[in-house]
Simulated assay, not measured.
Amino acid sequence: MVDPLFRQSFLYDALVLDRDIHPGQMQLSSGACVNVLGRGLVEVVPPRVTEETKHIILSAGIHGDETAPMELLDLILADILNETVAVKEHCLFMLCHPEATAQHSRYIDENLNRLFNKEQKEQSKEMQISQVLKSVVQGFFESVPESNRWHLDMHSSIRQSHHYTFAVSPKVKKPTRSRELISFLQKGAVEAVLLANAPASTFSWFSAEHFGAQALTVELGRVAPLGQNDLIKLTSFELALRGLITAELSHLEEQPIETYRVTQTIKRMSEDFGFNFAQDVENFTTFEHGQVLGHDGEKLLFAKSDDEAVVFANDKVAIGQRAALMVCKVETRYEEDQIVYD
């Protein structure tokens, strides 16, 4: 069929920055409606919305060079438009930073995924975008049951990783770590989940903190240019994603998942900052208790537990930002349908 909404596709239209994106709507034969809200913003409303309907945000491209999740969303939305995927849940597809993606860049002025708290900062391209994204999320989630709100913010890692796919569950006071959410990860063969121990300023944290959404940052493979991602390695996750939005997850089997707790967050606090390990160290590389990880000015940075693993190490971040997470494996259980650990 001829797609009346896009000249090329959801993704590639968003990247043509000198061409305006006009709002548009298409009703499918199933009765579902596809609404183009703006550049990189498409809402899919199922034929029937009830009190049980999930309201799911699927976002990608917070970092412009993390392209595999963008390609996944592009493929899924194309199949929705050609009616080979019958959506049963209310969905919002988001490509968050098309300008950075078009420039093959992680960001323009600063890291967008550090701008979703209330801290006042100088204006920048990313600050403007964060305000728009927060408004879009509020509009999507308002007037729907808190228990039905989901947000999967999808990324790709800068470096190699012992776990090819993993997720980070933000720390908030609301019950946002449901058995159903963890089951989705297992059905998508996501290899590990990190349970954060402190508030953050990420996009997924924003949705969990302010709207009680079942929200995750999901890391899918490694950064690669558009067209060079090995999406075959993400087949299990793609099937689970399709199952989530079509309410057809029951046929997928849960796979084992490793669970980690965050033991410490290392922030860069001075110009004289560096790690002792190699720049290309893999995510989830482990260290022993007392091993020196690096330095921050005159302060030495130590591993605080045996088999403490490093994730997201980046000694080039701005002063005051997270330079690494340190995590340890942990045994978990469910209490009142929420995953917890001792």
Rank of each mutant, 00 (worst) to 15 (best):
K171T: 02
V16R: 09
E89S: 05
T235A: 11
I21M: 11
K134G: 02
A68C: 04
H55D: 05
D20W: 15
D20E: 15
E83V: 11
K299M: 11
F140K: 04
G294K: 08
S156A: 15
G290W: 06
K267E: 06
V2D: 13
I319C: 12
P175T: 03
N148T: 07
E254D: 12
T101D: 13
L81Q: 10
Y334I: 01
F10A: 08
L75C: 13
T101Q: 07
P256T: 08
V2P: 15
V190A: 05
L81K: 07
L41R: 06
H155T: 03
V190P: 05
N35W: 13
A100W: 01
D230Y: 12
M94P: 14
I158V: 15
V45A: 10
V45S: 14
I80H: 07
D272I: 02
F287M: 09
F237E: 09
T84N: 08
E335I: 03
F211I: 08
A278G: 12
V223E: 00
C91I: 13
V281C: 12
A189L: 01
R177Q: 11
A318H: 09
D74Q: 07
V44N: 07
Q186P: 06
E99Q: 10
R177S: 04
F140A: 01
T53Q: 03
N283F: 00
G64Q: 10
Y341L: 08
T50G: 04
G221W: 02
W205D: 03
R48F: 08
F116S: 01
V2F: 13
A215E: 05
Q321I: 09
L252D: 12
L5P: 15
N197C: 05
Q131W: 12
